[in-house]
């Protein structure tokens, strides 16, 4: 018979220490009876990995049904494929963006974001081709391409550098501001809204983005300022 000196409860012979407070049971005059554990020594249960195949199967089936139904409806109503091109290509693009990463155990964001931008670019090219537009090479491609370079660069820097996140985000803001100027320039150039270099609305987001970016870089470079801001704004 042993008692926990802290909790005062009697301890079964199976207990080498008090299960309530972890105090070791020991008394120089008492030899404790050997007793079998209350439950057998435990096997360790490993987490069963989540089975993604069911989700993949359902999503793939739903996308396939949507494409087939669209093609059939278009064919039966118009005796040919007309509007259904927009739908099936849109579903295919969404499949690449949403479902493709589920196929892989550890999807690498750098690769999948690149794949997403490729899918978007192809989709826009296809729409441009179907509508006989002239905006793909001079507007859609540079906008999507530069956006892709900007986003992928930021993801890579954050993922692989792991330091200087404020510099990266600050740089991202400045690049985002420049991207606004470029967007307006390309709109002017492609759709002949006004003179290509006559920038009006994009100056405002550029100014805001640029100031935020510079402020973040100043904060990143100035340790005392960083500490004082952390003290003021912690959550």
């Amino acid at each position: 018979m042993a008692f926990c000196i802290k909790c005062g409860v009697e301890l079964s012979d199976t207990e080498k220490s008090c299960p309530l407070c972890n105090t070791i049971v020991w008394h120089p005059d008492i030899k404790r009876a050997e007793s079998k554990p209350l439950y057998p020594p435990s096997e360790v249960f490993s987490e069963s990995p989540m089975n993604k195949s069911g989700t993949l199967f359902i999503l793939t089936t739903l996308c396939t049904i949507a494409i087939v139904v669209t093609l059939l409806s278009n064919f039966s109503v118009n005796s040919g494929l007309t509007w259904s091109h927009y739908v099936w290509s849109g579903i295919a693009m969404l499949y690449i963006i949403v479902v493709l990463p589920i196929w892989f155990r550890r999807p690498n964001p750098v690769i999948f974001v690149a794949a997403d931008y490729t899918a978007i670019t192809l989709y826009l090219w296809f729409i441009c081709y179907l509508t006989g537009g002239k905006w793909f090479l001079t507007f859609a491609l540079p906008i999507v391409g530069l956006n892709a370079i900007l986003v992928i660069t930021m993801i890579m820097l954050i993922r692989y550098l792991r330091h200087g996140i404020l510099y990266i985000i600050g740089g991202g803001f400045i690049a985002g501001g420049l991207f606004m100027l470029l967007t307006e320039f390309l709109i002017n150039y492609t759709f002949e809204v006004r003179e290509p270099f006559r920038l009006i609305w994009s100056i405002y987001p550029f100014a805001a983005f640029f100031i935020i970016g510079i402020a973040l870089i100043v904060i990143a470079a100035n340790r005392p300022l960083r500490e004082s801001l952390r003290k003021k704004f912690f959550v």
């Binding site: 926990c4 909790c7 005062g8 409860v9 009697e10 301890l11 079964s12 199976t14 207990e15 080498k16 220490s17 008090c18 299960p19 309530l20 972890n22 554990p37 209350l38 439950y39 435990s42």
Partner: peptide, 16 residues
């Protein structure tokens, strides 16, 4: 319960 004067015998499957 112990402080109310009730006698408590404790056992467990603790791994410590």
């Amino acid at each position: 319960l112990r402080s109310m004067g009730l006698h408590v015998l404790v056992e467990s499957n603790s791994r410590s």
